[in-house]
Write a protein that binds this DNA or RNA. Structure first.
Lengths: 105, 105
DNA sequence: GTCTTTGGTAAGTATAAACTTACGGTAAGC
DNA sequence: GCTTACCGTAAGTTTATACTTACCAAAGAC
């Protein structure tokens, strides 16, 4: 549960989230990503490391380059983590409405 | 989409995530929350403001106190945001497997 | 072999943000 | 009325982190 939530911290940064969104379209190499952002290539490398540690992306060697792509498992785990709260919040909210409608508005 | 992602930044901080998780169990007042964490009450107030601006919690007055609880809409929006990437990542991954199985492992 | 391309990591800096104390404002108890 | 409890905000500090430049290693082109 706690390690699942680690992905949330990874996606908290706007640049990292933008990188993540680019990788959702298609796998890309590091330099290819760096050319699409106003930050340097080492900065992109560091962001990719955070995303990788969070289990959101996987990488593989392709000759000279290194290809990164989204990890469906990691994204799914984050989804499952949020589902838990969504269900709990919805249940608690509906219970409050039934108990006292004025309380919710 | 961008405002949905705002919630990710809000849940990026560990303390804020812990507050969020407590609120999932049941609505709580600010001081009640503060007593459960090693940070001061103003710090909790500031975290709650961030969560509120992100649309993840709602608050209401209850006499002297102020009750916070999860906002199912905001949590649901975050879910939807992640669903989009989950579906895209899964499709891209499966397409890669069909194209070249060795490429994925 | 040399030269170029690609990318990870180390070291240092600058910006952001999480936290504290101090204060003011509102509601309840008396 | 006065006092206490609850909470938000302002101001300042301290810590974290996103970023840069500099360096090194591995793989392809020649």
């Amino acid at each position: 549960m706690t390690d699942r939530a680690e992905g949330l911290a990874a996606l908290g940064d706007p640049t990292r989230r933008a990188i993540f969104e680019r990788l959702a379209d298609r796998p890309r190499a590091v330099g290819e990503l760096a050319r699409e952002f106003p930050v340097t290539r080492p900065a992109v490398s560091q962001h990719l490391k955070v995303l990788k540690d969070a289990g959101l992306v996987v990488d593989r060697r392709a000759g000279n380059r290194r290809i990164y792509q989204l990890d469906p498992d990691g994204v799914g785990a984050l989804r499952a983590y949020l589902d838990q709260f969504w269900n709990r919040a919805l249940a608690a909210f509906q219970a409050a409405v039934e108990r006292d409608p004025k309380e919710t508005q």
